[in-house]
Amino acid sequence: MSHTAHIPSHRKPRQRASKSALRAGVAGGVLSTIAVAGAAGPAQAEPVTQTIEMPTITSGFSTAVAASAQATQQVALDLETQADEDAAAEKAAKTAKKAHAEAVRKAEAKKKAEAAAKAEAEAEAKERAERASRTAERTTLSASSGSSDSTGSSASAPSSSSNVSGSAASIVAFAKAQVGDAYVSGGTGPNAWDCSGLVQAAYRTAGIDLPRVSQSQSTAGTQVSLDNLQPGDILYWGGAGSAYHVAIYVGGGEFVGAQNSSTGTVQRSLDYDRPTGAVRVL
């Protein structure tokens, strides 16, 4: 006898033919109903829900992210350091360029100062030589003037175009001896003059005291025509009594005057700057 003879079977008993027919009819009816409903209108689709599973971050991935962040931070630090170094180099270059320009400027200034000092020394030496020459000329003039006054004989003014005697010779010679002196407002000598200071000093050599300013000097004597001038006459520019400039007529159609700060004391033709009038004091 088989070991499984008494074990009951787990299979379900076969359904009867009637029950199978009934189920087939029900199924057919349901399918027919669904077909009719589908023909009547669209079926409502049910929403489909899908669950997406997110990957799980493992400890190895976290370590990689941390390493990447650290590397990025290091790159940023390196870039910042490079930028600081570049800025420092640029600043150093600018400082060096500025220092070089300053050194060049100082060298040029020193060179100019040395040239100016040399020129000044040469000018001073020349002025001393001219001053010595004028002093010697004045000494000779004083001696000649004294001799003329005591003997009554006439004396000729140096480099004059006509013979001038007496006090006029002294005045003309003194005025000519100052040619080349500087013009200084308010100057009364011995090496710097203004216009009226020169005229006053020239007349003082002849023992004549004139007023100090040009306005008063322009009325200190007799008014004379410019066509009838004599050496020693006072020329003036502006009105008589309101003159703004004076000089001394030295003969030969020329005058000597302390003109301005640009020209200093000069000897010029009357045509250089035609005067307004003249007075004769002698």
Rank of each mutant, 00 (worst) to 15 (best):
E130N: 12
K111Y: 00
T139K: 02
A88H: 06
A119T: 09
V104W: 00
K94G: 02
S144F: 01
T135Q: 11
Q74W: 01
A99F: 01
L79I: 06
S150M: 09
E90M: 10
E85I: 15
A88F: 09
A115Y: 02
A132D: 08
A99G: 02
E85S: 14
A116I: 03
A101F: 00
E80D: 11
A113P: 01
E127T: 13
A99C: 00
A117Y: 02
G146P: 00
S153V: 12
A69L: 13
A99V: 05
A143N: 11
L79K: 08
A93N: 05
A109S: 14
L77D: 13
E122N: 05
E85N: 15
A96K: 07
S133F: 02
K94H: 05
D84E: 15
G146C: 02
D84I: 08
A125K: 09
D84L: 15
E90C: 00
A109Q: 14
K111V: 00
A89K: 10
K94E: 07
A107Y: 02
D86S: 09
T95G: 00
K106C: 01
A115S: 04
E120T: 12
S142V: 08
H100K: 15
G146N: 13
S142M: 07
K106F: 05
A117R: 12
R134C: 01
T139N: 07
S145F: 14
Q70R: 13
A123E: 10
K106Y: 04
A89V: 12
E130R: 12
T140H: 10
S150A: 15
K112T: 12
K110G: 10
D78K: 04
S133R: 11
A132W: 02
A116S: 08
A116H: 03
K111C: 00
A93R: 05
A116E: 14
A136N: 07
A83P: 01
A92G: 04
S142H: 05
T81E: 12
A121C: 03
K91V: 05
A123T: 05
E130D: 14
A125S: 12
S148I: 03
S133T: 06
E85A: 14
E122H: 05
A99K: 07
A109F: 04
A93E: 11
A116F: 00
L79N: 10
A69D: 09
S68R: 10
D84F: 10
E108D: 13
S68I: 07
A119W: 03
R105C: 02
H100D: 07
A96W: 00
T81R: 09
E102H: 06
D78Q: 14
Q82N: 11
S133Q: 07
S142Y: 06
A69P: 01
A93K: 04
H100S: 12
E124F: 03
T140K: 10
R128I: 02
T140G: 11
K118L: 11
A115M: 05
Q82S: 15
Q74P: 00
S145C: 06
E90S: 13
V104G: 01
S142E: 06
V104I: 12
S145G: 10
L79G: 03
R138E: 11
T140N: 10
Q74L: 14
E80G: 08
K126R: 14
R128Y: 01
A69K: 14
E124A: 15
S144T: 15
A117H: 06
A136R: 06
E114H: 07
L141S: 15
Q73E: 11
A132L: 10
S68T: 10
T151N: 08
A92D: 13
K97E: 12
A107L: 09
K110I: 03
S145Y: 15
